[in-house]
């Protein structure tokens, strides 16, 4: 898709009527196009080139790049810093904000700072507990939770004020996201929790890894019945598994990820488990795409980021479109001059 008002790197797009952000990602979703996002793990480094190198592997295949915020309670470059670097060269990052490490004063400040740096999408998360990471002795903050965080950012955007009521001279223009996990108990409460997030202002959802399609279908049916899928864009989370062993480890050690036995069995039978993992991911994407109310996929390929391009390409969900990346149009011009 080429937008007539495609950006110069770092320049915001005009905000179209009914849109809330000057970003490309919101436009893709609102145009009814099946969107693709991928997760970037910020480096343990102070070198900006490490961030760019990690983003470049997604070039031409994603509409947005999620920058995680201390995922798994491990320390990495901050999501604000990562996103500020990405916007410099025109990428559309989705800034993840976790409530684990910062209180409401710090978070509201970061939201303003990020918006000033050109960030147009944020993903409001509660965050993993500190026990999950390499510094379990840290003090967990959890001053807000994902829902009160959503409300806070929405207040800043729509009412032009901090939670305290103090006025903002310029509001952050953001597209608001949050996560959903249909695969964790209490299952019958999960759609209501999503409804709560919609009431708190969520505009797009990225779900936890979907491996259990029947549970996901059930969840989506309920979500459609409640009319939630019309009020936000739901992107299904997917990712390639490297082997049966790593899948079992993830299932046992990473809270909130449910991998059915059938998936693990299929991987253990495969000759090349890595290839099988990718194939499984591609099939999942194709099936998820058929589910009514699913507006896109979010690929979390931790330590297999270079596989994302191949997975998306082979799944065919882009239907020949090339999402924007720095240099895309230059490459196109060059190609059309040659032909």
């Amino acid at each position: 898709m080429i937008l007539p008002d495609e950006p110069c790197p770092g320049e915001p797009l005009p905000i179209l009527p009914g849109h809330s952000s000057p970003g490309r990602f919101e436009r893709v979703l609102r145009s009814g196009t099946f969107a693709v996002t991928a997760e970037l793990a910020p480096p343990d480094s102070a070198n900006p080139n490490d961030v760019y190198a990690r983003a470049r592997v997604f070039d031409g295949y994603v509409d947005g790049i999620n920058a995680t915020d201390g995922s798994g309670a491990n320390c990495h470059m901050s999501s604000v810093g990562t996103c500020a670097l990405l916007t410099r060269i025109g990428y559309a990052p989705v800034m993840q904000i976790s409530c684990r490490d910062r209180n409401r004063i710090a978070i509201q400040g970061d939201v303003l700072g990020a918006a000033a740096m050109g960030v147009t999408n944020v993903l409001c998360l509660t965050g993993d507990g500190v026990q999950a990471g390499d510094q379990p002795e840290a003090k967990p903050v959890f001053d807000l939770d994902s829902i009160s965080l959503l409300e806070t950012v929405r207040t800043m955007r729509d009412q032009h004020r901090f939670l305290s009521g103090r006025k903002l001279t310029e509001a952050p223009k953001l597209f608001l996201g949050a996560a959903a996990n249909p695969f964790a108990p209490p299952y019958d409460y999960r759609p209501y929790r999503l409804a709560k997030k919609v009431a708190a202002g969520v505009q797009f959802i990225q779900t936890q890894y979907c491996f259990d399609l029947s549970r996901f279908r059930e969840f989506m049916a309920r979500v459609r019945d409640m009319g939630i899928s019309e009020r936000c864009f739901i992107m299904a989370g997917v990712g390639p598994l490297a082997s049966a062993r790593s899948a079992t480890w993830i299932r046992d050690n990473v809270p909130g990820i449910h991998i059915p036995d059938s998936v693990i069995k299929r991987l253990s039978r495969a000759e090349d488990p890595r290839k099988e993992g990718k194939q499984l991911c591609i099939e999942l994407i194709q099936e998820l795409r058929q589910i009514e109310g699913v507006s896109g996929v979010h690929v979390m390929a931790y330590r297999q980021e270079e596989a994302v391009a191949e997975i998306i390409d082979r799944s065919g969900v882009l239907e020949g479109r090339v999402p924007w990346y720095p240099g895309r149009d230059k490459a196109n011009r060059y190609r059309s001059a040659l032909s």
Partner: peptide, 30 residues
């Protein structure tokens, strides 16, 4: 709740309905 969540369960609830942070305890929100 170890995360002091006041708006519902986080996504880390274990399959048996126990807490992500304290695996021996039932999730407060379940």
């Amino acid at each position: 709740c170890p995360k002091h969540l006041r708006n519902g369960p986080c996504g880390g609830v274990r399959l048996n309905g126990n807490c992500e942070v304290q695996p021996e305890r039932r999730c407060v929100w379940v």
